[in-house]
């Protein structure tokens, strides 16, 4: 399975949706990492994510760290309430750049 990735101008937006748990993290990681290879600006849209656990958050952290290494821009776009709640609990709401 792959998540939709859309080129919009100079950026790629990867759309994650549904429940991002251990069963989905390989696909999420691949979609985001593939996009990081193709563009200097990546947005991960989380508006339609109803559930994310520590495995999903780990993918986002990995991607942010990879983007930093590659000197690319990385944003979380429109995170759902479920995502923000988990990020705040882990005090990661200040680690990521969040765009609405």
């Amino acid at each position: 399975m792959e998540y939709k990735a859309e080129l919009q101008g100079d950026k790629i937006i990867v759309y994650l949706d549904g429940e991002i748990d251990l069963d989905k993290t390989d696909a999420a990681r691949k979609s985001i990492m593939d996009s990081l290879e193709k563009s200097n600006k990546i947005f991960v849209n989380l508006n339609a994510v109803k559930y994310i656990d520590s495995s999903g958050v780990s993918v986002l952290i990995e991607a942010q760290q990879k983007a930093n290494e590659m000197e690319k821009e990385f944003y979380l776009q429109s995170p759902s309430d479920a995502v923000m709640s988990v990020l705040k609990m882990a005090k990661l709401d200040v680690f990521f750049k969040i765009s609405n």
């Binding site: 656990d53 520590s54 495995s55 958050v57 780990s58 993918v59 952290i61 990995e62 760290q65 988990v86 609990m89 882990a90 005090k91 990661l92 680690f95």
Partner: peptide, 17 residues
């Protein structure tokens, strides 16, 4: 430790929290 940001290790924290 939440200040040591890295992939992994958050599951036990969430459960305890």
């Amino acid at each position: 430790d939440l200040k040591n940001i890295k992939p992994g290790g958050l599951g036990s924290f969430f459960i305890g929290e």
